[in-house]
Write a protein that binds this DNA or RNA. Structure first.
Lengths: 153, 153
DNA sequence: ATAGAATAATTCCAAATGGAAATATTAATT
DNA sequence: AATTAATATTTCCATTTGGAATTATTCTAT
């Protein structure tokens, strides 16, 4: 029945960070012609290579309806290619074009800049630990039960 | 020029967590009649007491246009009160109603459930360290330079 | 072989979003 | 005491969003 201090709740601590990071990121990206979800797509593809929409959704944390639209958009901007898989006509393979790769590369210094700025004041051991814990936390959230109900009123 | 491994970038690690947490949270909240931004508002007000929109925006990481609308909505649902400050007619003071507090309280077990689920497999020292680092990281992002530009193409 | 289930992606559309302009009030400056 | 600047909130509106339905294809079981 006690007070549930907010700053101890992991969901709160995690969720308030996202918008703050995005707020800083979105402007510079837009000044360079892309949006934040586009950057996510570019970054994931550059690291992990070509993939279908499901994997891209997992990598970017974007829902499929949003992603399908976004990929179409990026294809028409010349950032991505999207081809039907020869062996499975349901699926597509999305990949960077040369131009997409060039844009992704051009954004790298920005990403590094943010990395550095965010990490300012962290000892390198702290930083390593933070990364490790964030990865573990993410993995940990795979099998969380989502059926729960309480009677308000 | 090197590859910029994604899983080492703090912004990536942080941003992918948000949607995953929200995906799990939104359903149960909706089943109980509120949305996730509403929950944020309720939670912040319960912990920190009545406040104006600016502070509420800082606490919830919601932009003011969204927040103003949302608060109006929640007032008409009977969850919040919103009164002009007597000493400053520009400002308002937003607070929980009894009903708002009751709903917030009813959600507490859900929040705890998530807290526990997310923390599964973490040693309690790890958990404390994670909280500390997340708080530090958040604070660290106050003065990040947002002017940056690169030439793509 | 065929019907039904499962998978991959897309499209639809009602709702949510947030930057920018507008409104209202208070504070600061000349 | 005006005039200008700053602050707090609200409203506007074009864009974005994502759940649900749809389409198309492949897999499974009879």
């Amino acid at each position: 029945m006690d007070a549930l201090k907010l700053d101890e709740l992991l969901p709160y601590l995690v969720n308030r960070l996202g918008p703050r990071v995005e707020a800083g990121f979105a402007g510079p990206l837009r000044a360079n012609g892309i949006t934040l979800p586009m950057w996510r797509v570019l970054a994931v593809l550059r690291v992990s290579g070509p993939m279908g929409l499901n994997d891209l959704g997992a990598g970017t944390s974007l829902p499929l309806s949003t992603l399908s639209r976004l990929v179409g958009d990026m294809v028409s901007r010349g950032l991505l290619s999207r081809i039907r898989k020869p062996d499975d006509a349901r699926a597509v393979e999305v990949d960077l074009t040369d131009r997409g790769r060039a844009v992704a590369n051009a954004m790298t210094p920005l990403a590094r800049h943010y990395e550095t700025a965010m990490a300012r004041g962290f000892a390198s051991a702290e930083l390593a630990e933070l990364r490790r814990l964030l990865i573990k936390l993410y993995a940990n959230m795979d099998g969380i039960e989502t059926t729960w109900r309480a009677a308000a009123e």
